[in-house]
């Protein structure tokens, strides 16, 4: 497999690196109340937390607790009703440079091939097509879509579509990757493969990742920290450090440290009387 040339951050032990890293994305008292025809719907209670530069932060929480809402606010797609979000010291007032988003559904354009869907990112941002075409092909190959670049979305399985949307989120080499349950539609085996792949991409590129998932093991496997959200209206129930050495392998999912942490997190949902899935 060819490796796309991605920005590489100087290595070092993950924990040490993170401890030294500065807060990169800051949320301060961020809340969201939707105005609907039937009156206001409180979706996210005021939350305050940081994501450090190069950190992989996973958010788990029951369905409807406001995870997607939170992500859209960080992306600058949705205004917060209260509080402030800043990225790299700059207040978020709208969509900003250097962010790639993987939405909950693939959102591919039916009239574009896989390759052209990936390149949409480049066209919209008015970047040089020729410069990024090879990178797009490399990403397509890396995500196992080689040979499908000229196919249309409807000729792909759901999992393949979602992989194409991951390529689209990465093609312009953003510093921040926002992922909203990107692997929710994948079968268990592809999902594990994608987890390994994502870990590798994150490790080699040092991107800051906000990753939303339903799956507690997936969160623990990938993340530096796991943020647990309570039921709607969402608030932070707990934040856990994941002190499992990297690179992590699938076998480590059987280790005591891994199992303990997943059980502790799962406890939150049992305690609340809900278990997502």
């Amino acid at each position: 497999m060819t490796q796309p040339q991605l920005r590489v951050v100087a290595g070092g032990a993950a924990a040490a690196r993170l401890a030294a890293a500065r807060p990169f994305i800051r949320l301060d008292g961020v809340a969201k109340t939707y105005k609907t025809a039937d009156g206001p719907v409180e979706s996210v209670k005021p939350v305050t937390f940081d994501i450090r530069e190069g950190e992989f932060l996973a958010i788990v929480g029951p369905s409807g607790c406001g995870k997607s809402t939170l992500l859209k606010m960080v992306a600058g797609l949705l205004p917060a009703t209260a509080g402030e979000i800043s990225i790299d010291g700059r207040r978020v007032a709208g969509p900003h440079e250097g962010v790639g988003i993987v939405f909950q559904s693939p959102v591919l354009l039916a009239w574009r091939t896989v390759f052209d869907n990936v390149m949409l990112q480049i066209e919209m941002r008015k970047l040089a097509r020729a410069e990024y075409a090879q990178r797009a092909m490399d990403l397509i190959e890396m995500t196992g879509l080689a040979g499908f670049e000229k196919k249309y979305p409807w000729q792909l399985s759901g999992g393949m579509q979602q992989r194409a949307s991951i390529c689209r989120a990465l093609v312009h080499d953003p510093r921040i990757l926002l992922m909203d349950e990107p692997f929710g539609a994948l079968d268990a085996m592809t999902r594990e493969k994608m987890n390994l792949e994502l870990q590798r991409i994150w490790h080699t590129t040092g991107k800051t990742v906000l990753f939303i998932t339903h799956s507690i093991p997936e969160a623990v496997f990938l993340a530096d920290r796991v943020l647990v959200m309570s039921e709607r209206p969402g608030s932070i129930a707990a934040i856990y450090d994941v002190n499992i050495p990297r690179p992590r392998s699938l076998r480590m999912m059987g280790d005591a440290a891994f199992v303990d942490l997943t059980q502790t997190i799962r406890g939150h949902f049992y305690a609340q009387g809900t278990l997502d899935h």
Binding site: K72, A75, P95, H96, F103, V107, L109, E123
Partner: peptide, 29 residues
């Protein structure tokens, strides 16, 4: 046109004209 498509375009910092030409118009065809 699904709101998610518009979100996608906005996340790519697309102009209104770009969103219209590349997303809304083909979608409406």
């Amino acid at each position: 046109v699904e709101p998610e498509m518009i979100d996608l375009a906005r996340s790519m910092k697309a102009s209104r004209l770009q969103t219209f030409m590349r997303i809304s118009l083909p979608h409406a065809m």
